[in-house]
């Protein structure tokens, strides 16, 4: 039982990374009807930007010029990185997606893939092949609650993720821009005729998705401090699967499916040898999609790739 609870905590943490990244995929999908295949790499870029900002602040703080406590640095890092990474997202949208808005969707998928490769290679060229380690901004404290070990970082990660997801939900439901987003998700053809600035909304969507990916990157860096340029591939593709599993363009679905994927992975690893994790996790996903072909919250409609 204790073991079980322990794994639930782990799964919540693991799932919140997936959910945060899947949200980015899902938002772009709901508005532009295409997948931003570079999103996994934006997560990676976000983690590196977070690393840069955090290291900078820690060094600054160490010089004694302005001594900042760890949690302040963390908050500053998150905010600054969100801001910076959102520009990366907007550039990606401008370069890779806006010119292709009327092109076949598969072509946009290819540009996304290629932008992802460029981001990975660019990072490799800038930072070199060595892995970098994320500075431990807050001291790790472990609480023992009836035999279940919970670190303060895990709690922080889950709480911060949930807070951002809630904020996103409120943004989409309550604000004028959020309303425009929902309208565009509903009908991409008519809404532009009604005075909604399509380009602005598309850019905003990419910016928000990227900012969330940056948060996920920093939180990931806190939990697993080793970063490498290809970390976006593994996470990105899995989160992409989660986004689809949740149902295309459904924010709620993406969140739940992200957590579900985290649970599947952690519990598979708990029961079976860990090398079987991907095999079983993907087999479950495949079965879910075969028997529920439109995900959990997706609208069943006969979509096909426009050629």
């Amino acid at each position: 039982m204790v073991f079980f609870l322990q794994n639930i905590i782990n799964a919540l943490q693991w799932g919140s990374f997936y959910a945060m990244i899947a949200l980015g995929y899902s938002m772009v999908y709901s508005i532009l009807m295409l997948f931003n295949f570079a999103h996994g790499d934006i997560f990676m870029v976000g983690a590196y930007i977070g690393f840069g900002v955090a290291t900078g602040l820690v060094t600054l703080s160490a010089t004694g010029f302005i001594a900042l406590p760890g949690w302040v640095i963390l908050v500053l890092t998150i905010l600054l990185s969100m801001f910076l990474t959102s520009f990366v997202g907007m550039i990606v949208e401008r370069v890779g997606y806006r010119p292709l808005r009327d092109a076949p969707r598969a072509s946009a998928a290819i540009t996304g893939l290629m932008i992802g490769i460029i981001l990975e290679t660019g990072n490799l060229a800038l930072m070199g092949a060595r892995r970098v380690s994320f500075p431990p901004l807050i001291e790790s404290v472990t609480y023992n609650i009836g035999g279940v070990f919970v670190t303060n970082k895990k709690i922080l990660i889950v709480v911060v993720s949930l807070a951002f997801m809630l904020a996103l939900h409120l943004f989409v439901q309550r604000t004028r821009y959020g309303m425009a987003m929902r309208a565009m998700a509903f009908d991409f053809v008519v809404v532009p005729l009604m005075g909604v600035p399509v380009n602005t909304i598309a850019r905003l969507t990419f910016a928000i998705g990227s900012a969330l990916a940056a948060v996920a990157g920093i939180l990931f860096g806190l939990a697993y401090p080793v970063l490498d340029p290809y970390m976006g591939i593994v996470f990105g593709w899995k989160a992409f699967v989660a986004a689809i599993l949740g149902g295309r363009g459904s924010i709620m679905g993406a969140t739940l499916a992200g957590f579900l994927l985290g649970f599947i992975e952690i519990f598979v690893a708990m029961i079976f040898p860990s090398t079987l994790r991907d095999l079983i996790a993907y087999s479950i996903i495949l079965l879910i999609l075969v028997f529920r072909p439109h995900g959990f919250f997706g609208e069943p409609y006969s979509a096909r790739l426009r050629l």
Binding site: I244, T275, D278, Y282, L286, L289, P293, H294, A303
Partner: peptide
Amino acid sequence: RTRGDYLAIISLAFLFIVKSM
């Protein structure tokens, strides 16, 4: 029964399954 994006994911999952198998 499935076309488009969902089939793309099924095929992607298949790729990962083969690789990890």
